[in-house]
Design a protein around this nucleic acid. Structure first.
Lengths: 199, 199
DNA sequence: AAGATATTTGACATCATGTCAAGAACGTGC
DNA sequence: GCACGTTCTTGACATGATGTCAAATATCTT
């Protein structure tokens, strides 16, 4: 067998960076091939298609991001944990110059466009999966907080509410790019969910 | 001067329907030309470019949608008004088979991709503008409710929170397509904002 | 050393946007 | 009434995207 002449993971990293910067449809395989120093045909051979390449690059990102979230949610009072969660979330899609937005939300709205086109459906599931896993993390955090008497509502409903707000923040980031406003909304959300305890 | 052979508004309507169904990047001018019974070149002559055509079609939609919202927010108790607002919002992006999602959110995340590319910036402003106007409507509704003693919080902050949730709902709709869940989140949001008064 | 196997490479088909020049149809002014 | 000018229409063209494929190539295995 002939060995590959490029590093699989490095190409995924480069590809995700491009996808994140310019959107999936706004990134051509020629762009990625040029940046990675690989022939376009080799990308097709190694990954199958543009969307398959995106999916692999995204899954990589999702794992890394989940790990970071888990860490952010893991210490301090419930309020501190939720604050850290929003900080990480907002920081994630405000990173870069200009900010690149939330990869999940952007990918979801961009690829969800065409209806049931095989790979688009796979992508939708990948996005939905990450959102579900993040929701579960937040819910667990709230349940643990409830056990410590820091929260007395419905953990599932509250987690879903918080996740909805983070998705909304991802959208508002694109519309207005106003980071202080995003942070205010986040703080307000925490107050609402925790019933302004300790504020 | 030679008169146009097609109806300007009808083309906008057909174009918006296509854009809404398959996304901006997922719709080709050939598609629109075929559906509208117009030559592709005529579209360029009349509208300038694909994105300019989209912008005009979107502005048309935005005006109609704002009028509908204003009506929904205009009668009943504050809780009823907010409920009607969420109903209209969710109904809007759950309309069609399959549901077409929120045009604003989808357009924003799709076109916001490429950075500062002239027309993309115009589109971003159009989306941001509609969101701002909707926020103002909700804020006015909350302020009026406060004057009637149905609400005692910060109307501006609450309106921003509600809008953020609606943007989040637009994203979750694409991820899960679970309409009952969306309605639960909406109801929960109203409870949080109104402090569970009357629940 | 030779063959099997996977990768690389470039050519090709197809379809997208956008430009342009030439042709066609209508209002206007003489 | 007729020629002119202006706008719309039409088809050809340039460019660049995705995706396929066959031929060439480089390594591992036997």
């Amino acid at each position: 067998m002939r060995p590959r002449e490029f590093d699989h993971d490095e190409v995924l990293r480069i590809a995700f960076d491009q996808f994140w910067r310019n959107g999936v449809r706004g990134t051509s395989l020629s762009d990625i091939a040029r940046d990675a120093g690989v022939q376009r045909g080799s990308l097709y051979n190694a990954f199958g298609s543009k969307e398959a390449l995106f999916l692999q690059a995204y899954e990589r990102y999702a794992e890394d991001y989940l790990a970071a979230l888990q860490k952010a949610l893991g210490a301090g009072s419930l309020r501190k944990r939720l604050t850290a969660f929003f900080d990480l979330t907002i920081g994630n899609f405000r990173a870069g110059t200009p900010p690149r937005g939330c990869p999940t939300t952007r990918g979801l709205m961009e690829l969800g466009a065409a209806e049931g086109e095989g790979l688009d459906e796979d992508a939708r599931q990948a996005f939905a999966n990450l959102i579900s896993r993040i929701t579960a993390l937040v819910q667990d955090t709230l349940a643990a907080g409830a056990a410590r008497g820091e929260f007395d509502g419905n953990a599932a409903a509250a987690a879903l509410h918080i996740i909805t707000v983070t998705r909304g923040l991802a959208v508002l980031e694109r519309a207005f790019g106003n980071e202080p406003q995003l942070r205010k909304i986040a703080a307000h959300t925490i107050d609402l969910v925790l019933g302004r305890k300790g504020s």
